[in-house]
């Protein structure tokens, strides 16, 4: 499957899963909202130009917003994730050239610890920004803190399960460097 087809399918699937599964689950607590959809942005190929990365994320977030009737909320958080992603990958990559030897960030291409540090940082960033925007409209500081921590915890757990269920085998492309 070509990268374009694969990512288009992921685009649709992540939106549908987020809207019709994760948002439909009866909330355990008001602080817990399971977010997995932005994994799409993390899974995009290494060689996506940064401008396109942000534009794709913006459209992706806005489409989710249309379903959830929260215009701009998830789009803003997604664009932030897309903007920060290249910096964090640059810091965490195991060795020079790994971002050319492999297609996209995953456990195989980056290793367990760096990959989950990447996911942790981006999840925390995404949720902080999202809840911060909510907090500006209502809520207290404890609402902000509690919701960021609880939501990040649940999101990380779900991302871990997703990574294990849909383990992505990455081919080592020797002839690129």
């Amino acid at each position: 499957m070509s990268t374009l087809v694969k990512n288009t399918l992921r685009f649709i699937l992540f939106i549908l899963v987020q809207v019709f599964v994760l948002q439909q689950v009866p909330p355990l607590h008001r602080f817990i909202t399971p977010y997995v959809y932005f994994l799409f942005v993390i899974w995009l190929p290494f060689n996506t130009p940064r401008g396109w990365l942000m534009i794709i994320s913006f459209v992706f977030g806005l489409l989710l917003d249309y379903f959830l009737k929260t215009p701009g909320l998830h789009a803003a958080a997604c664009v932030l994730v897309a903007y920060v992603r290249p910096f964090v990958i640059g810091l965490l990559i195991r060795q020079e050239g790994d971002d050319q030897n492999y297609a996209s960030p995953s456990i195989v291409s980056m290793g367990w610890a760096p990959y989950f540090t990447l996911v942790l940082i981006l999840t925390l960033l995404h949720n902080s920004y999202l809840v911060f925007l909510e907090w500006m409209q209502f809520g207290t500081f404890w609402f902000f803190l509690g919701k960021v921590l609880a939501t990040t915890g649940v999101s990380l757990l779900l991302i871990l399960i997703t990574e294990l269920l849909f383990f992505r085998k990455e081919k080592f492309r020797t002839n690129t460097v």
């Binding site: 913006f58 977030g61 806005l62 215009p71 701009g72 789009a75």
Partner: peptide, 8 residues
């Protein structure tokens, strides 16, 4: 960001 926040 500005477009998104404007919508919001």
């Amino acid at each position: 960001q500005i477009i998104a926040l404007y919508f919001l």
